[in-house]
Simulated assay, not measured.
Amino acid sequence: MRHLLLALLLSTTTLPAAQPWRVVGDEQFAPYSFVTDADDTPHGLDVELVDAVLREAGVAYEIRLYPWERVKRMLDRGEVQMAFQFAGTPQRQEQYELVGPLRSGSTVFMTTAKTAISDWQTLDDFAPYVIGQVRGYVYEEHFDRADLARDTSAQNPRQLVSMLLAGRIDIIVGDRVQLQYFVHEQRAQDQVRILPRPLIQMPRFVAFAKGDIERARQFSEALVRLRNAGKLDEIQQRWAP
């Protein structure tokens, strides 16, 4: 019996520890997620929100930020367990187990004085213009499928704003807070304007591989607890402009 107890004790003490979740997000999505020139430490509102939920869930994890196209590939290939921040479109819902929303943001159109458009009622109003958008991003189902002239050469929103300011495109589309962040970065607030009507109020989700129900459940339950306790609002207030 003593030998049996010893064997059981040894077997339990040598079990491998649970592997930490590998969590990835967009490195060029300031102020929501970004890295600085000083180091590759993740910063941003969404980074803090995800960090708080994972700590509440009690799981081991590590967060890293990469270019958006790589983020999607890593999740698709099973190289990571979770990724953020995905738009809640039907396309994404088919691809992944989406959990959230983590937060919501207003998707808007930004332009300059060079264009005559002052607002829009239907997507046909954009027919005379070239609209810039980030390659690989999805925005809103009807807009994504509309027959419009598009420039998708931008690799990230910062580059998109630079292209607008340089006059290479007529209009750009993106998250209001984020576009304003990059405009302020270039001290160009007086050179741009946002059309009054937004495209959509877009919820942002975290994503797990299709079928990864258990991890999705763990994150979802922790997210609900923090939201009900007002902790997520506290984090968002710290990042309010």
Rank of each mutant, 00 (worst) to 15 (best):
L164T: 01
L165G: 06
A127S: 11
P90R: 10
S106D: 07
L160D: 02
D175F: 01
Q19F: 15
G211I: 08
V99D: 00
F182V: 09
F86G: 01
R204E: 05
D151M: 12
Y66D: 04
V130W: 02
G136I: 05
F126Q: 01
A7D: 00
E94T: 08
E56P: 10
T14S: 13
V173S: 06
P203K: 10
I131Y: 08
P198M: 15
A7Y: 09
Q236W: 06
Q95C: 05
V161H: 01
L54A: 03
D233M: 10
L123D: 09
R187D: 15
E97N: 13
S11L: 10
R135S: 12
A113H: 10
F126M: 04
L75M: 13
A18C: 09
R193M: 05
K210V: 09
K210C: 03
Y139F: 14
L9Q: 09
D26T: 04
D76S: 08
L75V: 04
F29L: 08
L4F: 14
E141G: 05
L98P: 00
E140I: 07
R103S: 13
I63V: 15
Q186W: 14
E27I: 08
I117S: 05
A149D: 09
Q155V: 04
L164E: 03
P157K: 14
I213T: 15
T122L: 04
I169M: 13
E140M: 04
Y32G: 04
G132E: 02
R187L: 14
D212Y: 10
L195W: 06
Y129R: 10
V50N: 00
E141Q: 14
S118G: 14
Q121I: 06
V206T: 05
L6W: 12
Q236I: 06
D170S: 05
Q189L: 13
L195D: 07
A57F: 15
D151H: 12
D46M: 08
Y129N: 02
E69H: 15
Y137R: 02
F109D: 02
G78T: 15
T13V: 15
T13G: 09
D170F: 02
A87E: 12
L45S: 03
F182E: 02
Y61T: 03
S33L: 11
P128H: 08
I200F: 11
P128K: 05
F34E: 01
L54C: 02
S162W: 03
T107Q: 12
S220C: 05
M202G: 03
A166Q: 13
E141H: 12
L102T: 00
Q93M: 14
T13K: 04
F84R: 02
H142L: 12
R158T: 07
E56I: 11
Q19G: 08
I194M: 11
K72P: 05
